[in-house]
């Protein structure tokens, strides 16, 4: 049984459980990821702002899509990662997974804010008002509320392991609910305002338009990896402050 389990999960999965190993591997990966992020985001932004053609209907305000869509996608992926990491922490009692889940929440919340703000700004030239109860914007707002709940619960519980476990349960409950909320909000939206002009739905986007978008999405993913690793390293140091290797690391400096 034990052997089968060992084959089932790769070796790095167990190594991830060691905070020290995780701290070191993050430190090694950070420069490369930072460089890739810088290149992708800078290149993507220049491409989006300078070379992508303007939309025939929305004109140049269409260029906001290159920030709005990646941040919205990332805010959702981040919640999923947070819930999955929380579940791993609950099941295998893995400290590093708890730390990943905790580090995810603020990044995801900030990306949700970015998606909301860019959506609202985009709404002004498109719909003529700063806020419209559009289905996507509304579900993003609710996702933001879910992040706030997770963060509030985490900060309210003093014991670190209890906080991690409780937030994991809440994140999992939220994960089950997200599709239901999304569906119900979309359905509510069609009930109340039939056939509004949707922000991100284009019949067929030409390649010159979606190529920079793809670059930006990948860039946001690597940016998320960098931000997560930065926070994770802090969290590992903070939680492992009593262990020998942290003392050694800090004394050498």
């Amino acid at each position: 049984m034990a052997k089968a389990e060992k084959k089932w999960l790769p070796r790095w999965f167990y190594q991830l459980a060691s905070p020290r190993w995780c701290y070191q591997i993050c430190g090694k990966l950070l420069p490369g990821f930072s460089l890739v992020t810088l290149v992708l985001l800078l290149g993507g932004t220049l491409w989006a702002l300078l070379f992508a053609p303007a939309d025939y209907q929305q004109g140049n305000s269409f260029r906001i899509i290159y920030l709005h869509v990646p941040s919205a996608i990332l805010a959702q992926s981040c919640y999923m990662l947070m819930a999955v990491a929380g579940a791993i922490g609950l099941i295998w009692k893995m400290k590093v997974a708890d730390m990943v889940a905790k580090s995810c929440a603020p990044i995801g919340a900030s990306l949700a804010v970015l998606a909301l703000l860019t959506g609202a700004i985009w709404g002004k030239p498109t719909w003529g008002s700063w806020w419209v109860w559009d289905a996507r914007l509304t579900s993003m707002l609710i996702l933001f509320f879910l992040y706030l709940g997770v963060m509030a619960l985490n900060s309210a519980i003093e014991s670190e392991s209890t906080a991690a476990q409780s937030t994991a349960v809440l994140a999992l409950v939220g994960l089950v609910n997200i599709p239901i909320i999304k569906y119900s909000v979309e359905w509510w939206n069609t009930l109340h305002q039939p056939a509004t002009f949707k922000l991100t739905e284009k019949p067929a986007m030409p390649a010159e338009m979606w190529m920079p978008l793809l670059v930006m999405v990948i860039g946001f993913y690597t940016f998320f990896a960098v931000a997560l690793m930065l926070r994770l390293r802090n969290e590992i140091l903070r939680r492992e402050r009593r262990s020998g290797w942290v003392k050694e690391l800090l004394l050498v400096k």
């Binding site: 709940g149 509030a152 619960l153 519980i157 809440l170 609910n177 909320i181 909000v185």
Partner: peptide
């Protein structure tokens, strides 16, 4: 259940639960 061990759980419950009530 998540907030039962906390002294000031009352407000926190609404924060956690209200988004889930939307559907």
């Amino acid at each position: 259940a998540l907030t039962v061990g906390l002294r000031k759980g009352g407000v926190l419950i609404s924060l956690l639960v209200l988004p889930l009530y939307i559907p």
